[in-house]
């Protein structure tokens, strides 16, 4: 295989949580590693690095995507919301509040992905029934088994119980 020492970096500008950030990364750096290692935004989690767990879910140009399966260079110019950009300074988003109220997490490692994923799902207008929500949220694994509490929290926000 071709061996390329010293991969040249490129300037990539991402608007992350409303702020334009320019990083210099080689093409082989994933968006997830860019967020975690280059921008100190470690709220997006690495649970598998292969698109099999959902912990790295971020909202990219309004859509939830897996940040481990895209490269930073591919997202040059994109608008990205990570868990750090959910809710306002000192005020949690209703979904974050609901996750606390419904005890929708235990270890907390899948939580940012669950929240980003469900916010994007709701904003896209998808998930009309509990059964649909369960299917549409199935890309976010929870090993602690908080599944029912997570879905309860999401349904409460969808139903307007948590505004």
């Amino acid at each position: 295989m071709p061996n390329r020492p010293d991969p040249p970096t490129r300037a990539v500008t991402l608007t992350v949580n409303g702020t334009a950030r320019t990083v210099h990364v080689a093409p082989w750096v994933s968006l997830l590693d860019t967020l975690r290692d280059h921008l100190d935004l470690t709220g997006s989690k690495k649970g598998c690095d292969h698109g099999q767990c959902g912990a790295c879910t971020v909202i990219c140009n309004g859509q939830r995507i897996l940040s481990c399966l895209t490269l930073a260079v591919m997202q040059d110019g994109a608008e990205i919301t990570t868990i750090e950009g959910i809710g306002a300074e000192g005020k949690l988003h209703p979904l974050q509040e609901a996750f606390i109220a419904y005890d929708a997490f235990q270890c907390g490692y899948c939580t940012p992905g669950q929240i980003c994923s469900s916010i994007a799902m709701i904003e896209a207008g998808h998930g009309n029934t509990r059964e649909e929500v369960k299917d549409l949220m199935s890309g976010n694994l929870c090993r602690c088994g908080a599944n029912t509490n997570i879905i309860d929290a999401i349904m409460a926000v969808k139903d307007g119980a948590h505004e």
Binding site: G51, R64, I65, L69, H126, L136, M137, G139
Partner: peptide, 9 residues
């Protein structure tokens, strides 16, 4: 197929 996140990409 896959998940909502993957289908978006």
């Amino acid at each position: 197929g896959a998940t909502a996140q993957i289908r978006n990409s």
